[in-house]
């Protein structure tokens, strides 16, 4: 069985609370899972301010700033993709079939600092 563990935090305090994890701790945990054969993929994300939302309606793509998924929309899946830049990532996102009925939030990956 595969499970997706989604990480939710208050971005404003994520890195500043006494209990806040350092990147190195996250990397160590991922490594321990990998050693157990339990790690498939994991990434940190850049803040929501860097997000772009892509929708396709009536064959027309719309691109807007921000993570403005409508409140009645729930997370239904994810694609981790390689793209040259944001424009290519947007084109890929527009091709994801549920972009026609929901929205695709495109968020850059953040590299952890060892």
């Amino acid at each position: 069985m595969k499970y997706l563990c989604l990480v939710y935090c208050d971005e404003n305090t994520l890195h500043s609370l006494p209990e806040s994890p350092a990147d190195s701790e996250c990397m160590a945990y991922a490594e321990s899972l990998a050693n157990n054969g339990q790690m498939i993929a994991g990434q940190a994300l850049q803040p929501v301010s860097t997000a772009t939302t892509v929708r396709v309606r009536n064959g027309q793509m719309s691109v807007t700033d921000g993570p403005f998924a409508e409140t009645r929309e729930q997370l239904a899946g994810f694609y981790l993709v390689e793209a040259r830049d944001l424009n290519e990532a947007i084109r890929i996102a527009a091709g994801i079939p549920p972009a026609r009925v929901g929205s695709i939030e495109v968020r850059p990956i953040r590299d952890l600092q060892p």
Partner: peptide, 24 residues
């Protein structure tokens, strides 16, 4: 400043869009 940060972090390319993207 925030806009410039987004351009850098999200890697918004410095280019004239391709013909297919131009109208939008």
């Amino acid at each position: 400043v925030r806009a410039k940060t987004k351009i850098r972090v999200a890697n918004i390319p410095y280019e004239v869009p391709a013909a297919s993207d131009l109208p939008a």
